[in-house]
């Protein structure tokens, strides 16, 4: 019997980048998973939480718990949204021991896409082919809150035709930061330009990341610099052959 996974595609993928969600589903199905999409899902609540609206974040988190509580494994195309559920739900429900323990048990079953493949499914070669020079941007929450460093690189290393060139500096923020990019738009843009310069230095034609929001931020800086470098989610690269 096929192992079952549920997708939490995140609100940003649902509304703006559906192709990322479809690519993720395709990769998982190719690996033999039975993929489900709980229709009542919306958002993880991070925008409210990061802006200091804990009550509102808690309401959204409670909804997330109800939607996904009975799912075995939940796969997410975002390090940031994964980290919200994995790290911050317990904190949000610190004063509600029962909800908190539900959140903690759910957190153990929520996985960022690349680490689900390497750590849970035990797959490093998904059989993809992608003829291009690419560079990889580490989203900060995937990197520092989830400790994901090698998983996406191991997956990329097994993509035929793909050459990976690392960024220098490698682990610097793109400047998105959710509402930070709204409240401090100019500063956030200046940070993105620094990232764009590092990308140009690599000579890569494609930037790959685990987080759609970083990619949106980076795409803005690249197109403003008049460059035709494209941004793709890891799932899109792994789905191609």
């Amino acid at each position: 019997m096929a192992r079952r996974v549920s997708l939490f595609v995140t609100c940003i993928v649902d509304q703006l980048f559906p192709q990322i969600g479809m690519a993720m589903a395709e990769v998982l199905e190719r690996l033999g998973f039975a993929v489900a999409f709980p229709q009542a899902q919306t958002c993880c609540g991070q925008p409210a939480f990061n802006s200091g609206y804990r009550q509102e974040a808690r309401q959204v988190a409670r909804h997330f718990l109800e939607v996904f509580e009975n799912c075995e494994s939940i796969v997410v195309p975002s390090g940031s949204c994964t980290s919200m559920v994995v790290h911050h739900y317990a904190e949000l429900f610190a004063d509600e021991p029962r909800t908190r323990s539900r959140a903690v048990s759910l957190a153990a079953r929520v996985h960022e896409f690349s680490s689900f493949l390497t750590e849970v499914a035990g797959v490093e070669d998904v059989g993809a082919r992608f003829e291009d020079v690419v560079t990889f941007h580490d989203g900060c929450h995937a990197l520092r809150e989830l400790g994901i460093r090698s998983a996406p690189r191991r997956l990329l290393a097994n993509v035929r035709g793909l050459e990976l060139r690392e960024l220098e500096p490698r682990e610097e923020c793109c400047g998105f930061g959710g509402t930070f990019s709204v409240k401090f738009g100019e500063l956030s843009g200046a940070m993105a330009r620094g990232k764009a310069e590092a990308i140009i230095q690599t000579g890569a034609k494609t930037v790959v990341s685990l987080d759609p929001s970083c990619l949106m931020q980076i795409q803005g800086a690249l197109s403003r610099a008049g460059l035709s470098i494209r941004t793709l989610h890891l799932a899109e690269v792994l789905a191609s052959r």
Binding site: N50, E172, C173, F180
Partner: peptide, 9 residues
């Protein structure tokens, strides 16, 4: 407190 992308560096 809002002047941060919360990158964690």
């Amino acid at each position: 407190p809002f002047a941060s992308s919360l990158c964690g560096a």
